[in-house]
Simulated scan of single mutants.
Amino acid sequence: MDVLSDAITSMRTGRPHAGRTEQHGSWGVRFPDSEGAGFHVVLQGTCWMLPSDGEPIALGPGDVVFMPHGRGHGLADSPHTPLAAFRGSLLGPFAEDAASPDTASPDTLLLCGAYFLDRARPHPLLGELPQALHIPARLGRHPELRSAVELLGGELERARPGTSAVLTSLLDMLLLYVLRAWYEEQSGHMSTGWAAALHDRAVSEALRAIHRDPAHPWTVETLGQAAGLSRAAFARRFTALAGQPPLAYLTWWRMTVAARLLRESELPLRAVAARTGYASEFAFAKAFKREYGVAPGGYRRHGQESAGALAATSLAQR
C-alpha cells in the first residue's frame, strides 16, 4: 500500500475545485484563512506569494505553491502592492476564467484552487508540512507534476464534454504530485520527520506493512522483521523518524481506517472491528471511544448527518 495516498485519502472530503485567473498591470489579492488546502500555479508571467508570516516568495512560470493548512495569504505583482480582499471562495464550484475587462493579453495567468480536508484528524505526514510548499519549475525536475499542470490549464481554458470529471481526476493527481515532489526535495535535507521516514527503507517497509494489513496482529518484533531490523533497533529508528512509537502509529491508523469505514459504509460493527485488528466488537468499541470520545454508533450517525449537509452545500453551490 502507498502511505502517501492513504494519508491523503484519510483526510479528503468533497470535490476539489479550480479556476483560471487573468491579471493585468498592478494587482494584489488577499485570501483569508480557509477550511480547504489551497494552491496556485503560475501558467504565464510572474507574481509574488505573500504568506501571513514569513518572507515573500517570488513565483515564475510553471511554479506551484501549495498551502496545506489553509492559512491566509496574498498574491500580487509586487511585494509592495496593496492587497484587495478576495471576492468569492476557492472552495466554490469550478470557475470560469476570472478575466479582466482589459482585452490585452494578461501579464499573469494563474491556476488557483483548493481541496476540502478534514482537519479534525490530520495525518502526521501532512501535519508537519510548512505553511507554504513552493515547488519551483526546474528543467528536468518532476515531469509528472509539469504534465498535470499543463493538462489542467488546457481543460480550464476551454470547457468540453467530460471536463468536470477530468478536472476532478487531474486535481487529485496534482495534489499527489505536489506532495511527492516536496518530499523528494526534502528527503536529502532532513534526518528526521516524514520526509526521512518515507525514504528510509526499513521504516517505509514497516509503514507499508501496517497500511497493507492493519488487521494483522502486529507487534514491534514482527514489524521489525518486516523492516529487516532487530526489535530494539527498529523501535528506535521508527520512533525517531515518525515521531511516535510503531504500535502508537498502528493504533492511530487502525482507528483512522475504522472511522472511514463507519462514515462511508454500512458494515456492521463486528466487521469494522475485524478489519481493524480487534477480536471483539466490545474491544473495538472501547478503543474507538477512547480515541474519538464517542461510541462507534454515535460517530457513524454524526458522519452520515455531516455527509448529508456537505452534499446539500455542494448542490446549492452548483
Results as ranks from 00 to 15, higher is better:
E185W: 12
L198I: 02
R263E: 10
W194L: 00
Y249I: 13
A227W: 03
R208P: 06
R237Y: 14
A197M: 03
R201A: 02
G224L: 01
A181G: 13
L261F: 04
Y183T: 09
A197Y: 05
Q225C: 10
S230I: 06
Q186C: 03
A226C: 15
L262N: 01
E184R: 09
L262S: 02
P245L: 08
L179Q: 11
P214C: 00
G193K: 01
A215E: 11
G243E: 05
R236L: 11
P217A: 04
A206R: 02
V257D: 09
V203I: 07
V220I: 15
A242H: 03
W182D: 09
G224D: 06
Q244W: 10
R237K: 00
R236Q: 14
T239V: 11
A242V: 06
T256Q: 14
V220L: 11
Q225F: 15
D213C: 06
W218H: 03
L241Q: 12
E205Q: 06
S191R: 13
A240E: 14
R236V: 08
R231M: 13
Q244L: 13
R263H: 10
A196W: 01
V257I: 15
R208A: 08
E205R: 11
P245F: 10
L207S: 03
A258F: 01
G243I: 02
A235I: 10
Y183S: 05
L261P: 07
G228Q: 04
R208M: 07
A209I: 01
L223S: 05
W252C: 08
Y249V: 12
L247P: 09
L207T: 01
A232F: 13
D213V: 05
A197I: 00
A196G: 10
S230F: 07
R260K: 11
L261H: 13
A215Y: 07
E185C: 07
L179N: 04
Q186R: 14
A233N: 08
R231F: 07
G188I: 11
T251M: 12
L241E: 02
W194P: 01
H189R: 14
A195M: 05
Y249P: 14
A248V: 11
T239C: 10
R260V: 10
T239S: 11
S187I: 01
W253Y: 11
L262Q: 01
T239L: 05
V257S: 04
